[in-house]
């Protein structure tokens, strides 16, 4: 039965003659106010279900926090959105028209989904500005890169981002010499240079001081509206300080969704966090 299905899919007319396949609109269409649709997604690793019939919708310009115990599948969910992991079943759409499951990692990145990993990776020997310069949306082939000069416009853009992430004073500093928190901001700045529509931020405040956390909260809040931002975080105080909508993941699916207060008073959530 399964082989027959595969055969049918493979022999579909639009699969055989790719000119019959509807052209994927690579322009992001957010006309319905939703930027990301994850529907009925499941992933299994060696028999272990990391994501289990997950449904998640993110609105345009929204700042969404995702919480959940260790191993709930938060990072795996981001892997799926960015094309790093392919789900076994389900659909993932970016706006109305872009099917994420058909695209490669770099394609997805260039369409405007930026991701910050748990561990900050900046280019240590380069200066803060140079890090931003490399991340900038530009023609990234070899020859144009060799000949590239910064235009006045691009300089302005770099200055804007430096201001947003609060690193103007450190512009000429070696990125390797930044503090842990500053590296995290620089990495967010590098994402911003690519003018993303959707930002995925995995555990941004781990290892930060309280002051740094406050500044990170300000930064993420200032990004919402212009971008959609999805933040995965364990620190409840931090989540409370930025979120208006929180999604709780548990064993690979959504357990609860709502404001921080609603979620915290939800008996199932209490059970998972306290009773589990």
């Amino acid at each position: 039965m399964k082989t027959l299905d595969t055969l049918r899919t493979t022999m579909r007319r639009d699969q055989v003659w790719d000119f019959m396949r509807p052209k994927q609109g690579l322009e992001l269409d957010m006309s319905h106010g939703t930027i990301l649709y994850l529907e009925d997604i499941s992933v299994t690793f060696d028999g272990f279900r990391a994501i289990d019939h997950l449904n998640l919708y993110i609105d345009a310009g929204e700042l969404r926090c995702i919480i959940g115990p260790n191993g709930a599948g938060k990072t795996t969910m981001m892997d799926i959105i960015t094309g790093k992991t392919r789900p076994d079943t389900g659909t993932a759409w970016f706006g109305q028209t872009i099917d994420l499951l058909r695209l490669s990692e770099p394609e997805i990145a260039s369409l405007g989904i930026g991701r910050k990993f748990q561990k900050p990776t900046v280019f240590e020997p380069l200066s803060v500005m140079e890090n931003l310069e490399l991340a900038m949306a530009a023609d990234k082939r070899v020859w144009p890169t060799l000949r590239a000069r910064l235009t006045a416009e691009q300089r302005t853009r770099i200055d804007e981002v430096l201001e947003t992430i609060g690193l103007q004073k450190h512009r000429a500093q070696r990125a390797g010499a930044l503090s842990h928190g500053q590296k995290q901001w620089l990495e967010i700045g590098m994402l911003l240079m690519q003018d993303p529509y959707l930002l995925l931020v995995d555990e941004p405040v781990a290892g930060m001081t309280h002051q740094e956390m406050d500044r990170t909260a300000e930064l993420l809040k200032s990004l919402a509206g212009k971008h959609s931002v999805v933040v995965v975080e364990h620190d409840m105080d931090f989540v409370r300080s930025i979120a208006n909508k929180v999604t709780v993941l548990h064993q690979g699916s959504v357990l609860a969704e709502g404001t921080m207060d609603e979620v915290q008073n939800d008996p199932r959530v209490i059970e998972v966090y306290l009773g589990g």
């Binding site: 770099p106 990776t121 280019f123 991340a135 060799l146």
Partner: peptide, 22 residues
């Protein structure tokens, strides 16, 4: 040149460089 900085980026963090589109 910018290509030189990309080279250094590749030297120190290859997959990250690939990820930002080079």
């Amino acid at each position: 040149s910018k290509l030189g900085r990309v080279a250094v980026a590749i030297r120190d963090a290859e997959s990250r460089t690939r990820f930002i589109g080079y």
